[in-house]
Computed example of a mutant assay.
Amino acid sequence: MIRFEDFMPVPDPGRTKVKLNIRAGSGGAAAWDLLLADDPDEWLNMTRHRELHQNNNMGSASYVLTFAQYYPYGPQYFIFGGFFRVQPVIPTLIGGSGYELEPLAQYSEYVKRLIIKLDRPVGRDLYLRWYDKIQASKLNPKVYELAPDTKLGTFPGYQNLRVKHESLQRIIANDEPSWKDALSSVKGVYVITDLSSGRLYVGSASGEANGLWQRWSSYANLRNLTGGNQELERLRAELGDAHIVENFQYSILEIFDPKTSRETILKRESFWKLALDSRNHGMNMN
């Protein structure tokens, strides 16, 4: 494997740190989940964090390379989260964030694609290291993988699912195993949100052999994008394919055993249309 410092040289090795994030505090969100979050501040806040009793100036570093533990592979794998210039806040602070992070273009094409592997798991004394010392340390990072596309993460669970259309297309196209297994195992009622307007469309996978996976595959089809729905087709004709790809988000309202009758699921779909008023103020026409 290629040595980390050979693959990612930096402009000022002696003033660059490498931050290997695992979790946001004791029992907090996993770093990889925060890197995946739609709000970039979720990830930046983790990278900014320092102990409250310390002078929070990133040890006078000028740059920081950030990584998140990539738990689908194991505790010694970390995925790249960006290269930042460290800009101290003046006057310095004790507690709170003592510096701002300016994203740099260098290595931006590797974000959520580059995975490094360490020789040993990260402990509390190892998660923040100077770049020019990390290669010779116990961690000894090496390049493990450079994925052809950004990683999407494993299936988050039915109750936590919130996926944008662009990501759904990639999930379906790549037959992402954890997503396919989960979505093929259930029927369900789902909601599509147009994030640009807040309008909702409630639909269901009630008769498909492969449940939600089969139904959502129709939305991910580049030649369709709407699953044949009348109002979505109108919106597509008016605003174009790009509007759907960039603004539509998919979530699950209710799941059912595959043996559940079509009539039962359609009744629940009707309930959710009433509950969310998606006929009068959304995109449902029936």
Rank of each mutant, 00 (worst) to 15 (best):
V186Q: 13
Y158I: 03
N224Q: 11
I172D: 08
W213T: 06
Q249P: 01
L161K: 00
S197I: 12
L200C: 10
D181W: 11
E231V: 15
T154N: 11
E208S: 14
R199W: 05
I171M: 12
S251W: 10
Y219F: 13
E166M: 13
V191C: 14
V189E: 10
G227P: 05
G203C: 08
R170C: 04
N174A: 15
R215A: 01
G228F: 08
Q214K: 04
T226Y: 02
E233S: 11
E208K: 13
G198C: 08
E246F: 00
L161S: 06
N247R: 06
L161C: 10
A209P: 03
W179N: 06
W179H: 08
G227S: 00
K180P: 03
R170I: 09
Y219V: 02
H243G: 00
N229E: 10
N174K: 14
I192P: 01
S184Q: 11
N210D: 13
Y190V: 10
L235I: 04
S178K: 12
D194Q: 08
R223L: 14
S196H: 10
S206F: 09
D181E: 15
N160W: 05
S217I: 07
E176H: 15
N174S: 14
I192F: 09
Y201N: 09
S217G: 15
A242L: 06
S185T: 07
L212Q: 04
W216T: 05
R162G: 02
V245L: 08
H243I: 06
L232F: 02
R215P: 03
L232C: 04
P156F: 09
N247F: 04
V191Q: 14
V186E: 08
G211T: 03
N229Q: 08
L222S: 15
I244F: 09
F155G: 01
G211R: 07
Q159W: 09
G203F: 05
Y250S: 09
S185N: 08
Y190D: 08
E208P: 01
L212M: 14
A220C: 02
N210H: 12
N247E: 01
H165G: 05
Y158E: 07
Q169I: 15
H165F: 07
L212R: 10
N247L: 04
N221W: 04
V202C: 11
S197T: 15
I192G: 05
V245K: 13
E233L: 14
P177N: 10
L168G: 09
L168W: 11
D241C: 00
F248M: 07
L195P: 03
G228P: 03
V202R: 02
L235Q: 00
Q214L: 09
S167D: 15
V191I: 14
S251I: 05
F248P: 02
L183I: 12
D175N: 15
S251H: 07
G203L: 05
G240D: 00
R162Q: 11
D194V: 05
N221T: 06
Y219H: 15
R162S: 11
A209R: 09
P177Y: 11
A182C: 09
I192H: 07
L183P: 10
Y219D: 08
G188S: 06
L195T: 15
G227Q: 02
V202N: 12
E246L: 00
L222P: 12
A182W: 04
H165I: 00
Q230W: 04
R236E: 07
S178G: 04
N224I: 01
R170G: 10
S204E: 09
K164V: 09
V186G: 07
H165V: 03
K164R: 14
S185Y: 04
T154M: 10
